[in-house]
């Protein structure tokens, strides 16, 4: 299949999901509220902590809001574009319904991760973008077109890393008899992305900044808005995206070999 055909399939899935969302408008509203609530929870935590302190690892309140907004923007984009499909993948592997994906004439990972989108997640990515803009306004930042384009590219590389981590997590379903609830592990890892890199020291710095890239992928775009371009950091973020995406594809394919199917 060509890239054009893959794009056509994804667009068809998006169209189908939007029609379905319009059929279940109440559901859409509840889920939008859920996402909004989680965004508010994270912002509230920052506000409460800053009532008792003036800085977290040298980051002021609005700088932290900018970082948290950026981390949540990446996560909301993941929720919007891939979450439902990948979450169902774990369940389908357990029940045997994954056969349906394998029977389709396309790359199984692509087919499994693009079956549907979550418009509520995408709506909330606009909310998180609003948080970033609000924090930037309070910090007196006026990024130019180049900085904004770079910020967008870094958000996309962050999305690739988060996608990879979620695929790695859900691929455990191929090895575990019951992977229910395992998706919570991804959310735990994603929480590190809301912390400033400077807060990590010693072992935690090695583990969470250099080995697991969730801190880098949110800190680099936030830092780019705050202090301008740092080529070394941008190169590191891009390299992480390529490396983790490769690891996710490799693990998914290894897991696929263990899939026993449910067909008689």
């Amino acid at each position: 299949m060509t890239l054009r055909q893959y794009a056509a399939i994804w667009l068809a899935s998006i169209r189908y999901t939007l029609v379905r969302t319009m059929m279940f408008r109440g559901d859409f509203l509840v889920w939008s509220l859920v996402e909004l609530m989680w965004t508010s929870v994270n912002v509230m935590m920052i506000l409460v902590i800053y009532q008792h302190t003036t800085s977290i690892a040298g980051w002021s309140e609005y700088q932290m809001l900018l970082l948290v907004g950026t981390a949540m923007l990446i996560q909301r984009l993941l929720m919007g574009f891939f979450w439902s499909s990948i979450f169902e993948m774990g369940r389908n592997v357990r029940t045997g319904d994954f056969d349906f994906v394998l029977a389709q004439p396309g790359n199984p990972l692509f087919m499994a991760s693009t079956r549907k989108i979550d418009p509520d997640g995408l709506v909330n990515s606009v909310v998180t973008l609003g948080i970033v803009a609000y924090a930037a306004h309070h910090l007196g930042l006026h990024p130019g077109g180049v900085e904004l384009a770079l910020y967008g590219c870094l958000i996309l590389s962050g999305l690739a890393v988060h996608y990879s981590i979620l695929i790695l997590t859900m691929s455990l379903a191929f090895w575990l008899r019951n992977a229910q609830g395992i998706e919570g592990s991804y959310f735990t890892l994603a929480e590190f992305g809301r912390l400033p890199r400077e807060a990590f020291r010693g072992v935690t710095r090695i583990l969470f900044v250099w080995l697991l890239p969730v801190v880098v992928v949110s800190n680099v775009p936030a830092r780019t808005l705050l202090a301008g371009l740092r080529p070394g950091w941008v190169a590191w973020a891009a390299a992480m995206a390529v490396l983790w995406l490769s690891l996710a594809v490799f693990t998914f394919n290894r897991g696929l070999r263990r899939y026993a199917s449910a067909s008689s």
Partner: peptide, 16 residues
Amino acid sequence: FQLAVVFVLWRAAYQS
């Protein structure tokens, strides 16, 4: 791991 998030965040907050 979640506790590690708590540790890193609150240790940094308590420094000030």
